[in-house]
Design a protein around this nucleic acid. Sequence first.
DNA 1: CTTGACCTTTGACTAATGTCTAAGGTTTAT
DNA 2: ATAAACCTTAGACATTAGTCAAAGGTCAAG
Lengths: 147, 147
Amino acid sequence: MYRIGELASSFKVKNDTLRFYEKHGLLTPSHRSESGYRLYTEQDKKILSFILRAKTVGFSLADIHELLSIEVDKDNNACADVKIVVDAKLEEVERKIAELSHFQKSLKQLSDACCGGSGSAAQCTILEALESDINNLRPEHHHDEQE
Amino acid sequence: MYRIGELASSFKVKNDTLRFYEKHGLLTPSHRSESGYRLYTEQDKKILSFILRAKTVGFSLADIHELLSIEVDKDNNACADVKIVVDAKLEEVERKIAELSHFQKSLKQLSDACCGGSGSAAQCTILEALESDINNLRPEHHHDEQE
DNA sequence: CTTGACCTTTGACTAATGTCTAAGGTTTAT
DNA sequence: ATAAACCTTAGACATTAGTCAAAGGTCAAG
């Protein structure tokens, strides 16, 4: 079991952040010592890891709470509701992946054009790099026009 | 050219948000009318699109500002600095993609286990699904039971 | 020319996500 | 058995990213 300071420092967050997550129902330590100290288990540690990882890819604490609340139970009649939530999150994740793949491509182009790279540096900003494959990747966008 | 309200409503953001981005150096309209109205070009529209997309994948406005400031110029002696920034962002993007791919796999498992899927629902929460990935990297069972 | 929908600015307000302070109790090492 | 380093709570403060309100200017339609 970990005390708050141990868990916090091992993830480079503040003790206060863990108390904050607890207050908001995201991570409640599984135990308390006799004197009231929070005691976190390995499972609690995994939950914290999940929270922090989900945050880095743009999920809010509310989103994360929802993700953590998912419990699949095939015999439960709320199952269809769960599937709706799961599938919605799955779609969101897939949209994010597509977005990031696009950024990745553009950043690679820029990186390759840097410092005497063979690239023409015709795309010298991320916007131009993004645009250079916008027509392949994002058919939703159409032509430029001026008013 | 678009006035603020046109651009804002076409991206479902508030006029105030555009003024906020301007104040923070993210998106300055290319023109002003004689009477002082902001006038946005197609290029400005692309910048806004970029800002909003980058936000959904977890970049802060400060990150986005940095991304927008990247300008590759092979003849410029600041080029190495640019490459450092670009490569750092590229790594960040790749970490995010890896994170999301992991989530995606887990959510798929949960979705498949839902509502009479053949899956054992042994992984009934996202945490368990995430963990099962660590041991068992084979996400292949198809569902065929009655619904 | 007036009306209403738009725009301007400045500055105050809000929500989400922490972070810090104060006043005190606990644990561990010397 | 006392200091150092932990922990507790409640509540104030900070930062990020907007959002709203007030007081007024602009523009197209009737």
